[in-house]
Design a protein around this nucleic acid. Sequence first.
DNA 1: CGAACGATGTTCT
DNA 2: GAACATCGTTCGG
Length: 194
Amino acid sequence: MTVPLPVDLARPVHEVAPELLGCELVHVKGGRRTAGRIVEVEAYGGQARDDCSHAHRYKTARNRTMYGPPGRLYIYFTYGMHYCSNVVAHAAGEAGAILLRALEPTAGLDLMARRRGVADPRLLCAGPARLVKAMGFGRTDDGRRLDAGHLHLVAGPAPRRIVTGPRVGVKGHDAGRPWRFCDADSGYLSRPVG
DNA sequence: CGAACGATGTTCT
DNA sequence: GAACATCGTTCGG
């Protein structure tokens, strides 16, 4: 069973990123469903376009998913203990991915709370590594298709207002670019914007 | 509150 | 050998 993607991901990553806001990410694992509405993302380009991106230089064992077909999950390990998740998106012949930084939990909050070890709904998915843990993702989910019955995106109400700002925790010449996109009215962001 | 810091190991130089 | 798209805790004002 396949589920159509609600957004055309085969386009420049900076155009796609704000359109992911409002979409719901659904993951069914072990017969249990968790889901959340995307409220905060960051766009990461490829090659010379973005020197903050994992794909800035060339293809490696870690970033190869960013060079693959759009519509897959790109998951990487960082800081010795955390995973972060992205949606692969780029125009033909490019590389790129959209980092998922925060979700508003919509389903399976009890399971998320157990995975995370906290109960406050506002803290379950407020951060890229937090939402990975809450959704039950791991290293082996890198490269998975996002149009499957057990892992897919659902169209949702677009944000009333979108706020942009510099991406969190990056250095480089492109660090100041406003490629972080947030639902301005969400109470589930990883941190204040602007 | 906010700033500082340690955890912990993979990836890249 | 340094850097790291982070998080939770601790410390200071």
